[in-house]
Simulated assay, not measured.
Amino acid sequence: MINAKFAPKLALLPLAAISLVACESQAEQEADRAEDAMEAQAEQSAMTSGTEQIALGMTEAQLIDADLVTADGTDLGDIEQVRRDASGAVTGLLVELDDTDPDRWVEVPMEGLTTRPDGTDMDVQTTMTAADLAALPDAQMTPAPTV
């Protein structure tokens, strides 16, 4: 049950959300739509790949759930998508970099990546620094080829 004193404020939440969206530029709205489409495609791909280990001894779902970290466990970004070539071979990981404004996504090549335990999960460890990642070009936000 909703407390009567909070009901008027709760009614304003949808209006606040609409106001926030209205403040975004056309480019920001298009970037949001591209990101949403890319994430939906990545989730669908992970669901269809099942339990097959595709890279680093991990399934696609495990990779998408992992963070990209340094050797000491410092979080560099979130893995959003597994990138493949036309034959289906994994070529890289699309990573949303931490602490960027506006948000930035880069494609990290598989060379030099390893796994790092994180409790009961696994993260992907890189030898790249935050500066190395920042120097990478922005990734294309188009859906990756699927197998």
Rank of each mutant, 00 (worst) to 15 (best):
L93N: 06
T127E: 15
W105E: 05
Q26E: 12
G92W: 11
D98Q: 09
Q53D: 15
L113E: 12
A31Q: 14
V124I: 11
F6M: 06
A7F: 14
M110R: 04
A86D: 15
I79T: 09
R83E: 12
L94T: 09
A86H: 14
A22W: 14
T70F: 00
T120N: 07
A11R: 12
A40G: 08
Q140A: 10
A139N: 00
Q81S: 12
R116E: 07
V147T: 07
G73M: 08
K5H: 13
P137G: 04
S49P: 00
M110C: 03
T146N: 04
D78F: 02
V90H: 11
E96C: 02
T126K: 02
G50E: 08
R116C: 03
E39I: 07
G50V: 09
A135P: 12
P145V: 13
A16M: 14
S87K: 03
Q53N: 13
F6W: 04
E30K: 15
L133W: 05
L10M: 14
R33Y: 05
L97D: 04
S87H: 05
T114K: 15
C23S: 11
G119M: 01
Q81R: 06
A17E: 10
I18V: 15
I54Y: 07
A40C: 02
D67N: 14
M1F: 14
D75N: 06
A22I: 04
L10N: 08
M47S: 11
A144Q: 15
Q81L: 07
N3T: 02
E39R: 13
A89S: 11
G57S: 09
A42M: 06
A7T: 11
V21T: 05
D36T: 12
A7R: 15
D132A: 00
M141A: 09
A86W: 12
V147Y: 05
L56M: 12
G77L: 06
A22E: 13
A27R: 14
T70L: 06
R84N: 06
R104S: 00
A11N: 07
A66I: 13
V106K: 01
P109K: 11
L76Q: 03
I18A: 15
S45G: 14
L68R: 06
M47T: 02
M1I: 09
D101G: 04
I79P: 05
D75Q: 09
S49A: 10
P14S: 11
A34Y: 05
A134Y: 04
D99G: 08
V95W: 03
A130K: 12
L113H: 09
V69I: 03
T126W: 00
D103Y: 05
M47V: 00
M38C: 08
A66V: 14
S45Y: 04
D101Y: 10
L113Y: 06
P8Y: 02
T129K: 10
A134T: 03
N3R: 13
T126R: 05
R33Q: 15
M110F: 02
G50I: 06
P143I: 11
T51Q: 11
